[in-house]
Nucleic acid binder design. Structure first.
Lengths: 109, 109
DNA sequence: GGCACTATTCTGCATTGCGTAGTACTGTGC
DNA sequence: GCACAGTACTACGCAATGCAGAATAGTGCC
């Protein structure tokens, strides 16, 4: 557990959170992330994140060969992913709280 | 205004916030950041951030030649820095809100 | 005076995550 | 067949963070 993830690895957390809601394939995750407010997220970043997460053993993956387009590669959380999500969420929350503290003294009213 | 800063540039904001409280030199900023809860922040990162911010015209800098050690290079916010802080703080806040929204559906209870 | 230690700054270099751009494949509509 | 949209993926680059180490300026000890 190193601090660099704290500062940069927010996308991982976002992807995990989105997948926790329900399984999704890359293109879909991108769309959901953008709808959630992360409008500037690049698709390649998401694919990369998905792959990293999968490689880290946090995701399951199954291909659905739709008849109306190319196959969709769905991803879903497994136990590792779920606990990673919990941990990361906690880390994020406390990090965000720290930042908000720092900012509180700045923003008067 | 690009999103990459959203995801990565948190340290900039933290440094700006700390400096808004009162001027400080690098070594001191590191200490204050750590005391504030950002324990894993590396000194080189802070020096780098300081330099980048200064180069971007957000900071003033003056050297205080202390008699009890090497000179201290103080940094402080100027108008550019203050408005950068405001902007970044707003961006951060809304980003954090988005993330919290995303996480709300995950963390039951 | 020299040595170790602390405070302080600064400079590589490596890692890594995010983004842009471009490729490839599959189905639909013309 | 061709253009277009949905979908996945790769290659490369940039920027930020971290680690390690050097340099500089004092203090204290011998």
């Amino acid at each position: 557990m190193d601090g660099s993830q704290l500062l940069k690895g927010v996308l991982d957390l976002a992807v995990l959170a989105v997948l926790a809601e329900r399984d999704g394939y890359g293109y879909d995750v991108v769309r959901r992330l953008r709808e959630a407010g992360l409008e500037d997220v690049g698709d390649a970043s998401v694919y990369g994140t998905l792959r990293r997460l999968y490689k880290a053993g946090a995701l399951t993956s199954y291909v659905v060969a739709s008849e109306e387009g190319p196959h969709r590669k769905y991803y879903g959380l497994n136990d590792v992913g779920r606990s990673l999500l919990q941990t990361s969420a906690k880390t994020w929350t406390s990090f965000a709280a720290t930042m908000n503290d720092l900012l509180k003294e700045v923003d008067p009213g």
